[in-house]
Design a protein around this nucleic acid. Structure first.
Lengths: 226, 226
DNA sequence: TTAAAATGTTACATGATTGTTATATTTAGT
DNA sequence: ACTAAATATAACAATCATGTAACATTTTAA
């Protein structure tokens, strides 16, 4: 089943909200409306794949709200399109500085808006294609099968990568050798415990100072200590 | 980080170049100038998202230069705006025949020019997003099923083309052989992993130096490294 | 039908990954 | 500190994954 894309429209004019909602829903999107930045901030923003923002609103203007969204790490990656009546240079520059992804001038053609929406969503789609797990300056990308430490590309073998992924997925948990075998090795192979130890060590050496984060729990197994 | 859009201005009058440069840079574009078609052709045109061309220049006039840009497969898709003092119909017709995207008459208001620039860029954005995928001097046209490298037409077979398209669509992502099979081969065929390897290699050889961009991730599969 | 092009398979070479063994070191308990 | 058990580590061996050439089969176009 195809997951529906949620879009949040924030505009103080009820009519505009309605028009946007109807048109975007025709395109297959799911649209919620808020009539002020304050109202919008009460919503769970994480649910939305895109936020359409009017510049002029009550207490807080669109740019200020955009800034807020960007500052919060959890929501920092949600694409924002600003709708503006003004089109002065300062507006544009302010917008881009605040991390707005696109802007559109009022009055706009619905057709044009829909194209912008699609384009922005397509772009952000590419980015979400990365599934990244981070610990301090260490990050692993599950899609790209990449490990980066302090910006440096670390070449891990398959076993090394998957053990690290396993540990980072549930930190502090101590994985028994048996469990590591189950989850990192093919189901049919039969290797001895020492093999895991050796691979743990190879991993430790490669991930620099983070090697010490992989801890040995004597008699139990291994885990990642934050 | 937002990538800056590069615009190339070609005009023999130094003053006009300067004015255009200043104004477009205020809009957030990156502007380079050339004072003749000859000078412009020495530049790496692919870097530019738009070329602003004066009709009247030294040896080669604007239309001739536009023709050249269009003939070269690599640059054929760069939008061109012609600035003209004359405004006879024949000029217009000639311009559009040669693939010019828009024209503007001198003397023009800076404000108007900026609007044209934005409009053309917006249009081209739409097109390039849908049909053509580019990486440096390699481009593939999804509609025409064509692959062009350094202006040279590269004959790729269907499998080769589709693998390349798959990889370029989500760069850096490592595709497992299973996924490649799913997305490039018909659903009912049953081919062995070695088949993919062999086809990967045929593709690598055909796409010249870009062959090394197709990377092998041992134990996982293949991907396109930028 | 025939020839050429595309795609698939096989077999072997090569290098990288992984496994094992042997020995050193660490740890926990006394 | 001493001992036994557990783990670390180095060196080597075995295996595995991939590259590649040559050939086989299928598809396409004339």
């Amino acid at each position: 089943m195809e997951k529906r894309v949620n879009i949040l429209v924030v505009d103080d004019e009820e009519t505009i909200c309605e028009v946007l909602k109807i048109n975007l829903e025709l395109e297959g999107y799911n649209v919620d409306c808020a009539h002020s930045a304050e109202e919008a901030s009460k919503l769970q923003l994480l649910n939305y794949s895109l936020i359409l923002l009017d510049v002029m609103m009550g207490e807080m203007n669109g740019f200020e709200f955009a800034s807020l969204i960007r500052k919060e790490p959890l929501t920092a990656n949600i694409p924002i399109i600003i709708c503006t009546a003004k089109d002065s240079d300062t507006d544009l520059i302010e917008g881009f500085n605040r991390g707005v992804d696109d802007y559109i001038k009022k009055p706009f053609l619905m057709r044009e808006l829909v194209l912008r929406v699609k384009s922005v969503l397509r772009r952000s789609d590419k980015n979400t294609n990365s599934d990244i797990i981070t610990y301090k300056t260490l990050q692993i990308d599950i899609i790209k099968k990449k490990c980066i430490i302090d910006g440096e590309d670390i070449q891990l073998t398959k076993k090394e990568f998957e053990m690290l992924q396993l540990f980072l997925g549930t930190r502090e948990k101590i994985f028994s050798r048996e469990e590591i075998l189950d989850r990192v090795w093919e189901s049919d192979v039969l290797v001895i415990d020492r093999t895991i130890d050796v691979n743990i060590n190879r991993l430790r050496k490669k991930i620099k100072n983070y090697g010490t984060n992989i801890i040995t729990k004597l008699g139990y197994g291994y885990g990642f200590k934050e």
